[in-house]
Design a binder for these strands. Sequence first.
RNA 1: GGGGUCGUAGUUCAGUUGGUUAGAACGCCGGCCUGUCACGCCGGAGGUCGCGAGUUCGAGCCUCGUCGGCCCCGCCA
Length: 580
Amino acid sequence: MRRTHRCGEVTKKDLDKNVVLNGWVKRTRDLGGMLFLDLRDISGVVQVFFDNEKTELYEAAKKLRMEDVIEVTGQVRAREEKNINPNMSTGEIEVGATGLTVLSKSEVPPFVISDAENASEELRFEYRYLDLRNEKAMNAMVLRSKAVMKVRNYFQRHNFIDIETPILNKSTPEGARDYIVPSRIHKGKFYALPQSPQIFKQILMVAGFDRYIQMARCFRDEDLRADRQPEFTQIDAEMSFIEQEDIFEIIEGLMVELWDLIDVKLSPPFPRLTWQEAMERYGTDRPDTRFGIELVDITKAAQETGLDMFKGENNVTKAIVAPGASEWSRKVIDELTEEAKKMGAKGLLWIKMEETEVKSSILKTLGEEKTRTLAVAAGAKTGDVALIVSDSFLKASKVLGHLRLVTGEKLELIDKNKFNFLWVYDFPLFEWSEEEQRYSATHHAFTSPREEDLDKLETSPESVLSQAYDLVCNGTELGGGSIRIHRPDIQKKVFKALGISEEEAEEKFGFLLKALKYGAPPHGGIAFGMDRIVAFLAWEDSIRAVIAFPKTTSAYCPLSDTPSEVGTKALDELNITLKK
RNA sequence: GGGGUCGUAGUUCAGUUGGUUAGAACGCCGGCCUGUCACGCCGGAGGUCGCGAGUUCGAGCCUCGUCGGCCCCGCCA
């Protein structure tokens, strides 16, 4: 018999109707002579009633266990006033059972489904099919589906074409470590899984699809975090004949529609901040602007103290003020110092502006008056604590940017209900890599320098700014992109600055360079971490919660036991020998 | 690659300065119960204390190593 209703959709309108329901046994409550059963499917839960006037049926119901799959026939009836359960959407009715079929028995599950949130992630992911039966986990996936539909719908309305790009790709030298797939036919050669469809979407622009969109699965073989999985989904978009501002507008419209899913009204345009300004004020390229506390440059005041520690040639002294934090114990200060050192600072200078006196690590060396002057330069008032770091501009900014976040958390200054979006743009085109002793691309090798910086490409690459941009929300980078290089001559100069030889460029990216020679339109685009966006919408801290089958931080899947060894036959065919 | 933290019953956890028989809650099994909805009450089963060494008369507890989960730094164009 086919079901007539989903469990959560039986309502008062169905009173006296005979219904057929399918679902999982959430729980039974046997009162002796009468038994209540909560039946669950994706739509919700409904209460089924068995009594011992129908002895056989009652005895059968007594044998049911959690997570058995059953079919129930019965009649919808209203609950008496005193028996209504206001916490249940179907709480005004119940189904008086007239028939019961067990469709599938369940073993005792390793955790109780309705309590899955309290089980360890490892266990939940091993039994993800049980975990997903839990309302919250299932809703996250439902929300994800809605978000995907929104995105596709939005871009279609704006004339974007959805095109799939290859999963088996050429390995490229820049960027993250590739996942590698050996080729059987081409022995000794390898495919790489895409870190992003970057080059292909640019080639699609050359082809003339002037607006492209794809939900692209991407793969990066790097160490994982709460917001990083080895495979993840990007909303990948690219447009021709546009400028940076066009991208901002179209994406702002998309964010409005996505956040509408959770009834949050965003009001574009989002604030725009240059990279320089973001670093100066927040010490990071992804500022969390849900709370105040900005970095202050006190280099001049610091140098006037005459202390050696402030003197270095490229030294910049920066500070933040923790408002009303003079109650902080020595232990808290020590913690902050540890945090600062973790970020690479030599140390952390602190000044406590207490009611009657000033306390500081440099009080003895500097004396009360000069110490107070320094704190005041940072903007500290009575009751505040000034935290000071002296180092290179980037180091001092980053350390204080981190301390700013820690301080915001500690003092509970962050309004968790806010969604503060902003654009960061004008990133440096290159950054110096100490490890490799060369410049590397801040965004990627195809990012266009700003027009006005073109002539500095060869003379002072470090000062060239790019047409790259990030969309940031609450201190998280949701996505980023750039206007691309569409002229082969500029692309060559950028490769040169990156220390990529012509031969290497030809070997690795030759197909893109060739395409650019055949009438490439000016173009640019952006890519978003779909998982991060959905995690935001679902109020989850980890993207694992919004991925159906996530991997652990060691890139292992506890459900399928992946990765695993392969047989010698497969290795032989691939001409691969494993090292001992 | 580095740092932190956790690992005890099916699950989530407690376990004192190293000391007799390792506890609780939920779940599970059995019984009672006619309006429950975290039902209630009574009884019961269930443990290689992640793994391996070491110290000790004696280790869940201390030491070293190792494996795994999570968080962070590096890394992630």
